[in-house]
Design a protein around this nucleic acid. Structure first.
Lengths: 256, 256
DNA sequence: CCAACTTTGTGCAAGCGTTCACAAGCGGTA
DNA sequence: TACCGCTTGTGAACGCTTGCACAAAGTTGG
């Protein structure tokens, strides 16, 4: 799969010297960015946006790494995936970095969102200000309950789920958010997919089956809680172990 | 830090032969489970719970893996971290597996949850049925708005955030959920930590600074959206690349 | 009791992501 | 201009995670 395209072979492009416009090989580079790095880029972007508002114009990898909660080597490597936009001895120009990360993350386009399932969570999502402000306008809401149809939630009237295909098409929805009960999730997912939605954010505690070309990310609150629970238990076991060794968890000698 | 404990050195324990009760070295084993495997164990547990309700008593690694959306080798390796509880030639006893995963995840204890920030999301979380049903009773709600104090949400009266220390202590809260605006998150986090909460689930788009002994997991909706956006963009770029090569994304020849 | 078949549990190798460590490069200064 | 100090960008090593492939261990049928 890799090393197939030969268009750039032998041509050494030095992004730092060719100006600030996007190099032609964004595609190759974007493909190579590790998934984990993409997630962190989004975090860096948020931190940097805050910096811009504070009037910060330049930042070093060390500072940004601290603010983003990662180590600086990782940060520099992550940024190196998108190009060399820093100045040695100085740091990064905050605005330049913001615009490049936005470009890589595809935030220069608008991504309309549809929320399916207007229960507690759906309500919260429809009203959540964080989406529109970050370039993800909520363009459609769906629910199976006919009583909800037409009722505005967060300023947008709810559509019946049967209209999902036409509404998604005409409003150019590119991201579907599933906030339905688990039993309904797979059916809703299938309808979203057949409506042409290729990216899905799933809040229902179900493993969705989708075609290869559809990207699914899931947020499972119960799983998150259980992971935390695991750490509580591990910690308790460790404490118990320390007690066995005669030392309490906080250093107090229990059995000297 | 590691390799300090020597109590089990040289003693070969064969969990499969010592009966079905928990082996004494759960602690060592729990410590060794990779983080990624823990997250999947939680997923297996959910799938298995569904199986129990359907009356399934036995399941093979292949079936369970399919239902959980992973490959069977990974599933078997994950299960091997918690012990050998399968029967070769047959598969796993569903109930046995459920109880062992629950034990490893620490779900035999009760983990009371406190939700801080009773806005849209906080409301949704307080009313979310998925928590109590999985052993995470919501024991306390907090908000900074005095008008909300005493108002019941999801059956639980809201407390003022100033009472966080006493209320968390007396209700034995072990997990704190932060659903506040970003500006307030760090302060709330600090208060939770000083109230003795060691596990935090953070919905605010902020990188929390906590002591080493506190476990934080974050759910950032904007980041999730941006990761999806990245994939949309990557896909579009790929399609553009194909067009450059003279072939459209769906196989239609654009420039023959 | 034996042979054939099924499925687990795991050693091993490959792949991916993280961390280290340092050369390269830039701005400031004399 | 030449030097110095600082910070980036990255090759290389390391460690964790995944996937393969198969021996071990159990069941079933004769």
């Amino acid at each position: 799969m890799a090393a197939q395209r030969g268009e750039g072979d032998g041509v050494v492009t030095r992004p730092g010297e060719t100006g600030t416009e996007a190099p032609a090989d964004v595609r190759e580079r974007a493909r190579a960015i590790p998934e984990a790095a993409v997630a962190r880029l989004a975090v860096y972007l948020r931190v940097l946006s805050g910096m811009v508002e504070q009037g910060v114009t330049t930042i070093s990898s060390e500072e940004l790494a601290g603010a983003a909660g990662v180590n600086s080597a990782k940060l520099r490597k992550d940024l190196s995936y998108i190009g060399s936009y820093g100045t040695r001895g100085v740091g990064y120009d905050v605005e330049v970095l913001v615009s490049h990360i936005e470009r890589i993350l595809g935030l220069t386009r608008k991504h309309s969102v549809a929320v399916v399932g207007i229960g507690n969570l759906g309500h919260a999502l429809a009203n959540y200000g964080g989406f529109p402000s970050r370039g993800f306008p909520v363009a459609a809401l769906f629910d199976i309950d006919p009583d909800l149809t037409g009722v505005p939630v967060g300023g947008i009237p709810v559509n019946h789920i049967d209209d999902i295909t036409t509404v998604c098409a005409e409003r150019e929805v590119s991201i579907g958010v599933i906030a339905t009960p688990p039993q309904a999730a797979q059916a809703v997912c299938d309808r979203l997919v057949s409506a042409g939605v290729q990216c899905i954010l799933n809040f229902a505690p179900v493993v969705l089956q989708v075609p290869d070309y559809v990207e699914v990310r899931k947020v499972d609150l119960a799983v998150e809680m259980q992971i935390l629970s695991f750490h509580v238990a591990r910690r308790a076991d460790e404490a118990a172990g320390d007690v066995v060794n005669g030392i309490g968890v906080d250093g107090v000698v229990i059995r000297p």
